[in-house]
């Protein structure tokens, strides 16, 4: 699993790739928390390189979303591969998160 974070033109991005499972979920949670906690604003999570997510990975994203929600902010997920999006749909998580098709759609959503 790799996660990179960036600020670009006032928009905050986290790029997640590889597998989020029980081994890597705590790292994802910690990095996202340090990133999302630093400043105001929503965070776009680009999942186009995400190959697999376990229930622990779903929980990690949910924990960050709940922490952000307290201050009226959200994670915006985008670029989900079909098999990862399938898991979000089958678990009901599509009703918890804002999910956009592409990074461009996610930026558009912020505007």
């Amino acid at each position: 699993m790799e996660i990179t974070i960036a600020d670009s033109q006032g928009v905050r991005f986290a790029d997640v790739s590889g597998r989020i499972d029980s081994k890597t979920a705590p790292e994802v949670e910690n990095i996202l928390r340090s990133f999302t906690g630093e400043q105001e604003g929503n965070v776009i999570v680009n999942c186009s390189g995400l190959e697999y997510i376990s229930s622990g990975g779903l929980r990690a994203l949910l924990i960050i979303e709940k922490e952000m929600k307290g201050s009226g902010r959200h994670l915006i997920l985008c670029g989900l591969r079909t098999d990862v999006e399938k898991i979000f749909r089958l678990t009901g998580f599509t009703s918890i998160f804002t999910i956009e098709k592409t990074v461009g759609d996610a930026i558009e959503h912020l505007r």
Binding site: S54, S55, L58, K66, L90, T91, G92, I96
Partner: peptide, 17 residues
Amino acid sequence: IDETLTIISGRITFVSH
């Protein structure tokens, strides 16, 4: 089995949330 258990565990997390 992996996918089915992810769905089951994920739904438990979803309902609990």
